[in-house]
Amino acid sequence: MAGPLLKVERLHKAFGTHEVLRGIDLEIDEGEVMCIVGPSGSGKSTLLRCLNYLEKPKSGAVFLKDEPIGVRWQGDRLYEMTFDQLARQRRRMGMVFQGFHLFPHKTVLENVIEAPIIVNRTPRRKAVEEAMALLEKVGMKDRAHYHPAQLSGGQQQRTAIARSLAMRPELMLFDEPTSALDPELVGEVLATMHQLADEGMTMVVVTHEMGFAREVADELVFMDEGVIVEQGKPADVLLNPQHERTQTFLARMREEA
């Protein structure tokens, strides 16, 4: 395929008068893993949420395989999509949240088969088969019939990853997937994500885990105050940052670690 899988062009976003994103340009190729780092409040979550139109950008555009997200052309006029039209596009991008957001009234298995059955109308038996395979992959097969409240944070997050994967997304968005976890549970979630990356999944990961970024990312993006300050191979950005803001940020991260 020619061209990037996901393309972000001159993206701006403001909450009221507060400019949170001030002109973001990005390209993500198929199979690429991109990690986004930056200080709190720099707009990382907002950027990720603009990618699948959970937030509506003020200006600029996001393209998934050249298809604009959230808007469509009709003749020569541009229209905002309805929620249901958006839903068709959102299926193509999985998203994993800091707070898991599993459906608490459903078991692990039911969480995973919900969207395939309801949205894709996959026959239940096939959905269960595929879900069990996914749960095995994320190491949750033996907990398939537990409810989220009975699981550790790490287990919940791995379930959330399986739930997203069940829709066979073309790329996965992760917003600080390990930030809400006890330190001893971070590893298991990162390992699952590492495995996913090795299998060729395209991933955009907002994270504070520099070790993960160095090992897994193909591209590291450093954001501050709504702009991309620096971007490149993780080894380059981490070991040889060009900008002062990047240097300060990395120094502080090292202190905390």
Partner: peptide, 20 residues
């Protein structure tokens, strides 16, 4: 958060209301 999670799974508003 659950409503958003459902949205990212491609569920419509009615599906989210009814199922979640």
């Amino acid at each position: 958060g659950q409503t958003e999670a459902a949205a990212t799974l491609g569920m419509t508003q009615l599906q989210t209301l009814r199922r979640i």
